[in-house]
Nucleic acid binder design. Structure first.
Ligand SMILES: [Zn+2]
Ligand SMILES: [Zn+2]
Ligand SMILES: [Zn+2]
Ligand SMILES: [Zn+2]
Lengths: 126, 126
DNA sequence: TTGAAAATGAAAATCATTTTCATTTTCTGC
DNA sequence: GCAGAAAATGAAAATGATTTTCATTTTCAA
């Protein structure tokens, strides 16, 4: 249930995730909190994130390099088109992929479904 | 081009990947090679995998816990539906996503386009 | 044969994440 | 308010995958 209380650290972490408005790693969130003058330890950031993930308030997934990244559930979800040469990025509205995900998952009886999708290539400038 | 030569270690790693027939981590592959009596160091396994990945002979992706896993690139391109609980994996035929990728990329003038897409959730058994 | 280039692997370094543990804060019943 | 229990906190140590260093060995072309 979501009957659990939320402690101070969890509130701070949610706050910074709101400001970020997308994905960020634990280390990044920790830095942002520090810079914002918040007094909070790295360990506590990790613990707050674990707790928020298991309460389904935050989504967790992985960067290419394996680092965990987090975002508030219900942030406006989108994907990216990235240039492998210059790194420039376009945000993609992906309703087609959202439907695809949902239908595949249903077809196989999966629940609590999430997904990742990135497109990469070489941009017109490069 | 794929004109590069392949060294002994890379051949050993390909061999064990063939035997495995699916995904395995670097550490697992190293263990398997050891048990199989092959003399090869962990560092070399990592290096061989890096090289094979960059030559597009091996696919790399991430377990839920962030560990990298590898498998031989099959001729048939597909995606995965993975259970975050038990790790069981379903291979997905993704013509819808292939079209989506292509149309988005064209729309933005990108070339040499690739993509990643994974769906994860909790399987019926779990 | 010989010297340069490539490959190898043990050990050390990195780096995200988790665990430990002693301290501090919050809560509960009186 | 007050004592003691429970929860939260964070510094430091531990963990574990991966990368880097570096000295040694192997390969290969001239
Ligand atoms: Zn570009
Ligand atoms: Zn999506
Ligand atoms: Zn499962
Ligand atoms: Zn595809």
């Amino acid at each position: 249930m979501a009957t659990n209380t939320m402690n101070k650290s969890e509130i701070k972490v949610i706050g910074v995730l709101e400001r970020v408005g997308g994905f960020a790693s634990a280390q990044e969130l920790y830095q942002l909190l520090q810079r914002g003058g918040e007094s909070i330890g790295l360990t506590t950031v990790y613990r707050a994130l674990q707790s928020l993930v298991s309460d389904k308030i935050v989504d967790q997934l992985r960067r290419e390099d394996g680092e965990a990244i987090y975002r508030l559930c219900g942030d406006n979800h989108h994907h990216h088109l990235v240039c492998k040469q210059c790194g420039s990025t376009v945000e993609i509205e992906g309703s087609a992929i959202e439907r695809w995900t949902k239908s595949i998952a249903e077809e196989h009886g999966f629940r609590e479904v999430g997904h990742t999708a990135e497109i990469f290539g070489i941009c017109p400038k490069c």
